[in-house]
Amino acid sequence: MRIVTGTATLCMFDPALLRHRLDDDCDWWSIPGAELAAVNAGQVAFFNVGGDGAYDLVLHAELAEPHVSVHLAVVSGRVFIGAGEDVTGGGLEPDTAYGGLFVDAPVGGCRVLARRDGGLISLAFVPDALSSNAFGDLVRI
């Protein structure tokens, strides 16, 4: 799968958990404090990739030596993976018409494990009892 981002960011989230952001500005998450609060609440995993462009994604059942691990809450059993600009907001919810994909994820909590090797990003969604984080800064891979 290839994701193209114009915001140097990839995101993963259960759309059911971000419906409260539907009427927010489409770029609500571009405010660092708002992004960090949503990540720490487990509502979304934003991965800042350092540059706009295309990234190839590979999903794994498990991922050895991840560069980052983010806890994510899941209530619907479905997680969207896409460019940061596809996050819920501005009256729009994610779809796959312009990229991105939906994957099944365990209901409850999971850890999103990520590793980046150049333009290749490897991800794994692993069941976990935790669904929140305590990051002091934005997540970069």
Rank of each mutant, 00 (worst) to 15 (best):
G100A: 04
D25Q: 08
A16Q: 09
G33F: 02
A97T: 14
V126Y: 06
G84I: 01
F13G: 11
Q43H: 06
V126R: 00
I81M: 11
I121Q: 01
N40V: 03
C110V: 12
T88E: 14
L138Q: 00
L113I: 10
D25M: 07
P127R: 06
V70D: 01
G136R: 08
V79A: 10
V126G: 02
T5P: 00
D95C: 10
A129W: 11
P127G: 09
L17F: 09
D128E: 05
D117K: 09
V58L: 05
I3L: 15
T7N: 15
L138F: 00
G118P: 14
P106A: 06
V107Y: 08
A114M: 12
C110Q: 15
Y55M: 00
A8L: 13
L130N: 11
S122A: 13
N40K: 03
A97G: 08
H20K: 09
D52P: 01
G108A: 04
S76L: 13
E35C: 02
G100V: 07
S69A: 12
I31W: 14
F13T: 01
L63S: 05
A134L: 14
H71A: 15
E35Y: 00
G53T: 03
I3G: 01
N48C: 04
V68S: 10
G90V: 15
V87D: 05
A83C: 12
V103F: 10
G109H: 09
R19Q: 08
N133R: 00
D25T: 11
T5F: 03
V103G: 08
L113S: 06
A129M: 11
V112T: 01
V58F: 00
S132G: 05
A41M: 07
S122M: 06
E85F: 01
P94T: 09
D117T: 12
T7P: 02
L113E: 08
S69H: 04
G53H: 01
G119I: 07
S76E: 12
A54P: 03
S30I: 02
A45P: 02
L17N: 14
L10P: 01
A114N: 02
A105E: 15
T9Q: 11
L63C: 03
L92Q: 14
V107R: 07
L63H: 15
L120V: 05
L72H: 04
G51A: 06
H20E: 07
A38D: 03
S76Q: 09
H71Y: 08
V4G: 03
P94F: 09
H20M: 15
G50N: 10
D24Y: 09
P15E: 13
V39W: 01
